[in-house]
């Protein structure tokens, strides 16, 4: 998966070259994110990173209230 991610990132960069520095930074940031996320998935790095944690904390309890009311 990591190899796939890296190749895909390179190809994606070649498909549409960013025109300004801002676009370049943003594109690279997202591509690095892609590689990072695939590292996490494939090699189980940063197992404690829970993206959904905060959402679950705030909205999970709210939804439970909705279910309780109904």
């Amino acid at each position: 998966m990591i190899a796939m991610a890296i190749v895909a990132c390179v190809v994606s960069y070649l498909i549409h070259r960013p025109t300004s520095w801002r676009e370049r930074v943003l594109t690279w940031a997202i591509l690095l994110c892609v590689v990072g996320l695939s590292l996490r998935t494939a090699l189980h790095l940063w197992p404690n990173l829970d993206v959904l944690g905060p959402l679950d904390l705030v909205f999970g309890s709210l939804t439970r209230v909705i279910y309780k009311v109904l």
């Binding site: 994606s12 549409h16 676009e23 997202i30 892609v34 993206v51």
Partner: peptide, 30 residues
């Protein structure tokens, strides 16, 4: 993303964004 970061076109992030969704789907919902 185009609005927020003032990009030239929606195309700029079409492919990198799709890759991030791909990697994100597996990383967020392990």
């Amino acid at each position: 993303m185009k609005d927020i970061f003032g990009l030239s076109s929606h195309r700029t992030l079409a492919v990198p964004g799709a890759l991030s969704v791909w990697a994100g789907s597996l990383a967020v919902f392990a």
